Simulated assay, not measured.
Amino acid sequence: MRIAELSRASGVPPATIKYYVREGLLPSGVRTHRNQVEYSEDHVYRLRLIRALLDIGGLSVDAASELLAVLDTGKLTVRESVGEVLYALGGRRSPVGEHEQGAATADVEALLTRRGWQVDEQSPARRTLIDVCAALRLLGHADVVAAMDDYATASETIAATDIGLVRSEPSLERMTETAIVGTLLGDTLLSALRRLAQEHLSQQLLPED
């Protein structure tokens, strides 16, 4: 198919398609003539994946490019691929005071020890969790920090589902893609489900006035 057909099939404007090719997110088509390039259904699927990462997942073009590069490598083990995906996703950082940072680090270290979680010292999610705990303590919400074990229990169940879905895929490429989509879009999915559950339970458990 030509670029105009690819645009119609994917809903992505031709100029944006060319931009994705330049940025390395989308593989180039096959040049059949001097001014003619042919694209395939693989390009349609890749464009849908790119739009999902950018529009629903909220990634920057650079972050999406980094994740897709992991997907395209095809030389890593499944465990290495998942690790690359998780670390490429990074985490939010918010500097806080030294006292809050120290207390929050102790909170997180204690949680990891209690649960026996093996997590690298440089894990972006680990650093993010420390920052979150520090901010919660600074705002006077140590009760939320104290409830982390309940959140961790739910998160471990969710993570087991995530890894099960990855393991069920037939190839390394599909496993890596599932890790990317399941983690990134899964975060958005879980956030929406949590808010729906909060709306439902608040009507049952919270007073009207």
Rank of each mutant, 00 (worst) to 15 (best):
R2P: 01
R2W: 01
I3K: 01
A4P: 02
L6Y: 09
L6H: 10
S7Y: 03
R8Q: 15
R8K: 14
G11A: 08
V12Y: 06
P13F: 00
P14W: 08
I17V: 15
K18R: 15
R22E: 03
E23Y: 06
L25R: 02
R34G: 12
R34Y: 12
R34M: 11
Q36S: 13
Q36Y: 15
Q36T: 13
V37D: 01
Y39G: 02
S40D: 15
V44I: 10
V44S: 04
L47A: 00
R48K: 13
L54N: 00
I56V: 14
G57K: 03
G58I: 07
L59H: 02
A63I: 05
L67A: 01
A69E: 07
V70K: 02
T73F: 01
L76D: 09
T77N: 03
R79M: 06
V82A: 09
V85S: 01
A88K: 00
L89C: 06
R92F: 12
S94F: 13
S94A: 12
P95C: 08
P95Q: 09
G97P: 11
G97I: 10
G97N: 07
A103W: 03
A104R: 06
A104V: 00
T105A: 14
A106S: 14
E109H: 09
E109A: 12
A110C: 05
L111H: 09
T113M: 05
R114E: 09
R115Y: 08
G116D: 07
G116H: 00
V119K: 02
D120I: 03
Q122N: 13
S123T: 09
A125M: 11
T128I: 01
I130T: 10
I130W: 00
I130V: 15
I130P: 08
V132N: 05
V132H: 07
V132Q: 07
V132A: 11
A134G: 15
L136R: 00
L136D: 01
R137Y: 06
L138C: 11
G140N: 07
G140C: 07
G140M: 06
D143I: 06
V144D: 12
M148E: 02
M148F: 09
D150K: 11
Y151P: 11
T153G: 04
T153Y: 09
A154R: 07
E156R: 01
T157R: 13
I158D: 10
I158H: 04
I158C: 08
A160P: 00
D162A: 01
R167T: 05
R167D: 15
E169M: 15
P170A: 12
S171G: 10
R174H: 13
R174S: 14
T176A: 00
E177W: 01
E177A: 01
E177L: 07
T178S: 10
T178K: 08
A179L: 01
A179W: 06
G182A: 02
G182Y: 00
L184C: 12
L184H: 02
L184P: 04
L185H: 05
L185K: 08
D187R: 03
D187A: 04
R194T: 04
H200N: 12
H200S: 13
H200G: 05
H200T: 14
L201Q: 13
S202A: 15
Q204W: 09
Q204P: 06
L205I: 09
L206F: 13
E208A: 15
D209T: 14
D209L: 14
